[in-house]
């Protein structure tokens, strides 16, 4: 029985996030569409794309976890036959699915866009994949903080830090010789440093989400 309730709670959260997922995908499609117009429009499209990924990452956690706790609708959910650990597991899975739905579609569509549109250099692919994984990395950090703390200061600080880090990460990635030399080239060049960075990004995702669940499973007081 608890398993099916968890599934229902996960579906409930995905349903609640449906407009956010649709809105993000519309913004992604629009950004790709306008990116083909000219170089200037490519920049505008890139900003729109990056913004939609950031907003998606923040809003999934804000609406699904933080707001549910602040407006006390989590008391309603916790009154259902579910343990507190199961509640947090459902929250985590639902947030992951909601984010990954939009993120995954954006990733696949954009990769196809780069590969299929002649004007788009395939050399952009490693940088793009690294950036997408960094959005996932930042989302996981913010989700973990949202699950672990009730503090508005912590959640606010995490939003600022993760958003600021995107600029630094882009500068860092752009300056990697393998990226810098091949960004406008016709072939995607993958190097060990790129794989190492990818590994780091995914390792952070696994670590922070695992840590958040571990801490929640050891918590005894929830209100």
């Amino acid at each position: 029985m608890p398993k099916s309730i968890m599934t229902r709670l996960i579906l409930k959260d995905i349903y609640m996030n449906r407009m956010l997922i649709i809105g993000t995908l519309l913004a992604v499609f629009l950004s790709l569409f306008i990116a083909t117009f000219s170089e200037a429009w490519f920049s505008i499209g890139s900003v729109l794309f990056i913004t939609s990924m950031i907003v998606m990452g923040i809003f999934v956690s804000m609406y699904g976890v933080v707001r549910e706790r602040e407006n006390k609708s989590w008391l309603f959910v916790l009154s259902l036959p579910i343990s507190t650990t199961q509640y947090f597991a459902a929250k985590l899975v639902a947030a992951l699915i909601s984010f990954l739905l939009a993120w995954g579609v954006a990733l696949v569509v954009t990769v196809l866009f780069i590969v299929l549109i002649d004007e788009m250099p395939n050399g952009l692919l490693p940088f793009f994949i690294l950036l997408m994984l960094f959005f996932f990395h930042n989302f996981a950090i913010f989700l973990a903080v949202s699950l672990l703390t009730k503090s508005e200061v912590w959640t606010g600080a995490t939003i600022i830090l993760t958003n600021t880090s995107i600029t630094f990460f882009m500068i860092f990635a752009f300056n990697l010789p393998v990226i810098e030399e091949n960004l406008s080239g016709p072939i995607a060049v993958w190097s060990p440093e790129i794989f190492l960075l990818m590994f780091y990004e995914l390792a952070v995702v696994v670590f922070v989400l695992g840590f958040a669940m571990f801490k929640q499973s050891r918590r005894h007081d929830f209100v």
């Binding site: 029985m1 608890p2 609640m16 407006n71 006390k72 609708s73 008391l75 309603f76 009154s79 259902l80 036959p81 579910i82 343990s83 507190t84 199961q86 005894h220």
Partner: peptide, 22 residues
Amino acid sequence: PQQQTLAKQQIGYVTDDMALFG
């Protein structure tokens, strides 16, 4: 709280600050 999942199948809990999904 060990058996809360089982117990809550038979408990109806309402508190004045509990909210539903707006």
